[in-house]
Computed example of a mutant assay.
Amino acid sequence: MAQEEELIQSENSASIFNTLSDIPSQMEDAELLLGEAMRLAGSLTDVAVETQRRKHLAYLLADQGQLLGTSTTTNLSQVGL
């Protein structure tokens, strides 16, 4: 997939955004896309989604804590984990 290679080589968020934005206009087989989406959606569970949500929330809180300094990390750690 050419877009996959473009994403790997992307060096900034603008480039990633542009590549992802172009993908829908390059789709030729919508039925294949929908079939793959349905196959993948069948493997999602509430537990898997919640686990990933918590993981990404923890990353965001850690990043926020680094930006704000260590004195505020105790308040941030109480948010929804």
Rank of each mutant, 00 (worst) to 15 (best):
E4S: 08
E5L: 12
E5H: 10
E6G: 01
E6V: 04
E6S: 06
L7G: 01
L7D: 02
Q9I: 02
Q9T: 04
S10H: 00
N12C: 02
N12F: 00
N12M: 00
S13A: 09
A14V: 06
S15K: 12
S15I: 06
I16C: 02
F17Q: 03
F17G: 00
N18G: 04
T19G: 03
T19A: 08
D22C: 04
D22H: 07
D22P: 01
D22R: 13
P24Q: 02
P24H: 02
P24Y: 00
S25I: 06
S25V: 06
S25K: 13
S25Y: 09
Q26L: 13
Q26N: 14
Q26W: 05
M27E: 12
M27V: 15
M27I: 15
M27K: 10
E28P: 03
E28S: 11
E28G: 07
D29P: 08
A30R: 12
E31A: 12
E31M: 07
E31W: 08
E31K: 11
L33D: 10
L33N: 09
L34I: 14
L34T: 11
G35A: 12
G35N: 13
G35S: 12
E36F: 08
A37M: 15
A37G: 03
A37N: 03
A37V: 15
R39M: 08
L40K: 14
A41V: 05
A41K: 13
A41Q: 13
G42T: 07
S43W: 09
S43N: 14
T45D: 01
V47D: 11
V47E: 14
A48Q: 09
V49C: 09
E50M: 10
E50Q: 13
T51Q: 09
T51D: 08
Q52D: 14
Q52C: 07
R53N: 05
R53I: 02
R54Q: 15
R54L: 13
R54K: 15
K55P: 03
H56L: 15
H56F: 15
H56C: 08
L57V: 03
L57P: 03
L57I: 03
A58L: 15
A58V: 15
Y59F: 10
L60C: 10
L60K: 01
L60R: 03
D63K: 06
G65T: 01
G65I: 00
G65Y: 00
Q66A: 13
G69M: 04
G69H: 01
G69D: 06
T70N: 10
T70S: 11
S71R: 11
T72S: 07
T72N: 06
T73W: 00
T74Q: 08
N75S: 05
N75E: 06
L76F: 00
L76M: 00
L76A: 01
S77T: 08
Q78D: 07
Q78P: 03
Q78N: 09
V79D: 09
V79I: 15
V79M: 12
